[in-house]
């Protein structure tokens, strides 16, 4: 992951048990980091998720390189620390169309908003869900109110 180390000397690098690299970049350089990975051949977005550390949220974007000739290319996890309230981040869904639903799910479950997402709404929970974002650690509302759904929102 030398290409990232050159461009982001101040970012924190860590290696997982299975050899994956994770890199913690500041939120304002997230777009730059993702684009750098994309240019380096990491064109496959395996997963987007978040971790709730109770004092902050960490967005994890797992990228991979798909090259049939290579064996054992480790994944690359780009991490961004975000505040728990009103988190906003640049959406990678236009660069990686496959991340579209993963970002929607992350919004649904953790409440992170993605700027520039083509279809930014809830995915697993109903549109009229008002109980908050369930995968946050302090989610307790077991039976939230569900107002009557007047009209379904479409992405046109």
């Amino acid at each position: 992951m030398d290409f990232l180390k050159e461009r982001f000397p101040e970012a924190q690098f860590e290696t997982h048990v299975n050899g994956d690299t994770e890199v913690l970049v500041p939120a304002e350089r997230y777009e730059e980091a993702v684009r750098a990975c994309y240019d380096a051949g990491f064109t496959y977005c395996s997963c987007v998720t978040a971790i709730d550390w109770q004092d902050r949220l960490t967005l994890v974007t797992s990228l991979a390189r798909i090259n049939p000739e290579e064996v054992g290319v480790p994944n690359l996890h780009i991490k961004v620390d975000l505040p728990r309230q009103g988190a906003r981040i640049w959406s990678i869904a236009n660069l990686y169309p496959g991340a579209n639903w993963h970002e929607r799910e992350t919004y649904d479950m953790y409440g992170i908003r993605f700027d520039g997402h083509p279809n930014h709404r809830r995915i697993l929970l109903p549109d009229n869900w008002q109980g908050g974002h369930p995968l946050l650690k302090d989610f307790t509302d077991r039976r939230p109110k569900r107002p009557r759904l007047v009209r379904h929102r479409f992405a046109e």
Binding site: H16, N18, S46, S62, N75
Partner: peptide
């Protein structure tokens, strides 16, 4: 303490868990 992202080839494609 630690994190892991493990990908395997499931029946329908890449099954992975974080």
């Amino acid at each position: 303490k630690g994190e892991i992202y493990h990908r395997i080839e499931g029946a329908r494609g890449e099954v992975a868990c974080y």
